[in-house]
Amino acid sequence: MNEKKIKVLLSAYSLETHSRGIVTVASMLRDAGMEVIYIGNNRPEQIIEAAVQEDVDVVGINSMCGGALELGGELMRSAEEKGIKDNMAFVMGGIFPPEDEPKLKKLGFKALLKPGATSEEVVGSVKEVVEA
């Protein structure tokens, strides 16, 4: 009767210095019984490579200091090339201007998490995007 564990890959883009947010999210997801793989800072194509290799359900990206749109675009292009854009769910957390939110959604990020998101919200949205 065991449900399959949700497998999540977490990464930030190359230059992101902060990691408190991503480490916090990792602990929330793990406490909720998910398998979490954290690969530190990487270029978009490296993140996608790791996602393919680990065969995850969800890719979670942290972006605190700008570049969310530009690098998000590269990430999605890379995901498309590898043919995983539609069978993995992409989620982004961090600080980004409110006017960028619809653009990020349009790029293909299924959920956007902001500072202060509760465990319930974080876990809930990851489950939701997996089920969708």
Binding site: S14, L15, C65, G66, L69
Partner: peptide, 21 residues
């Protein structure tokens, strides 16, 4: 961020982050 991480503004990693924070 690129300056903190010691990258030049024209390196590909710096996209979207020049002058942001």
């Amino acid at each position: 961020l690129p300056t903190v991480q010691m990258f030049d503004s024209d390196e590909p990693e710096s996209v979207g982050q020049v002058g942001t924070v």
